[in-house]
């Protein structure tokens, strides 16, 4: 598999504190890599390091196969864009002027493509409105448009939906999916809004206290998050007998609850329980989501 970014035993130390500690990760080309972690887990520090804003204390990373200390790294960085924390925009300029400024920084010969970029992020009709008067969502989209100026192959977005309203979140999600599918841009997205990330990401990296706890693809995650039916009954012993007779896999949760895995015929199950004088109080389908998986992985008690 071809990787856009690989990090090996990366460490970032601030005085006596390791913001990133022995972190290794690989981002496959064409993926949307969701970096999951609570506040202070090291997500933003990792973003800053791979964007070249900070140097790692130990370890290293490669970008498009080029080691970060190699001379060619500056050339390779042209192939990436990023929005780290807040969008980097000149507030006293219009959206168009901001893009023109970035075109000049990139040394692009003409302003061709600016209208297309503004249309892509939905800012075509902002006219002479200064960026300081933009809503948070508009600023975020302008930040992404600036990051897209050099037609990058890799885009790193740090908390792109933080503070956005529901419509803003949908807009950003659709934009990311569009850029990934139509322009084959690889994404690294950090977020602690797991439900949002679960709708986008093709790969996940779970980070905690600066460590990469686990890397997993979306399909592997789906397989790991097994679907089940949770039953609440009056007699869990009777339920156990019935489930054994039906050859179903299950786990007892409490004195009145059990999770049943695999296909369950509800009618057959309820009739069998009725024969055992066991009443079914409630029944609902349950599948472990990204949030549960994450909490199980890093320990729920420590979570905010």
């Amino acid at each position: 598999m071809e990787y856009v970014l690989t990090a090996n035993a990366l460490k970032k130390q601030y005085r006596h504190f390791y913001a990133i500690n022995n972190l290794s990760m690989s981002i496959p080309r064409g993926s949307i890599y969701g970096l999951v972690g609570k506040n202070g887990s090291g997500k933003t520090t990792l973003m800053r390091v791979i964007c070249g804003l900070q140097e790692p204390t130990y370890g290293g990373y490669t970008l498009f196969g080029v080691y970060y200390k190699a001379k060619a790294i500056n050339k390779v960085r042209r192939r990436m864009g990023a929005v780290v924390e807040t969008p980097s925009i000149y507030l006293d300029m219009t959206a168009e002027d901001n893009l023109k400024e970035q075109y000049r920084v990139l040394g692009l010969p003409s302003y061709e493509g600016i209208d297309e970029l503004l249309g892509l992020v939905g800012l075509s009709d902002t006219g002479k409105k200064k960026a300081r008067n933009f809503s948070l969502g508009m600023k975020q989209r302008l930040g992404i448009a600036i990051a897209l100026c050099g037609r990058p192959d890799f885009l790193a977005l740090d908390e792109p939906v933080n503070g956005l309203d529901p419509q803003g979140i949908v807009d950003i999600r659709e934009l990311i999916i569009k850029l990934n599918r139509e322009y084959q841009i690889t994404f690294l997205i950090s977020s602690h809004i797991l439900s949002e990330l679960s709708r986008l990401a093709t790969h996940f990296g779970f980070i905690d206290k600066g460590y990469m706890v686990k890397e997993i693809s979306a399909s592997e995650l789906e397989a790991a998050c097994r679907k089940c039916v949770r039953l609440n009954v009056t007699d869990v012993n009777a339920l156990s007998r019935v489930l054994d007779n039906l050859n179903l896999e299950y786990s007892i949760i409490s004195g009145c609850e059990a999770d049943v895995y695999g296909y369950v015929s509800v009618t057959e199950l309820v009739m069998a329980l009725a024969k055992e004088n066991c009443e079914v109080k409630s029944i609902h389908e349950k599948d472990e989501d990204l949030e549960n998986y994450y909490i199980n992985l890093v320990g729920g008690g420590a979570n905010e």
């Binding site: 070249g52 500056n74 050339k75 960085r77 990436m80 864009g81 980097s88 925009i89 000149y90």
Partner: peptide, 18 residues
């Protein structure tokens, strides 16, 4: 100072200017 306050200095470094 506005390069820092707007974060625009990052746009220069991220795309590989030394």
């Amino acid at each position: 100072g506005s390069e820092y306050s707007n974060g625009a200095i990052r746009n220069k470094l991220i795309i590989g200017h030394s």
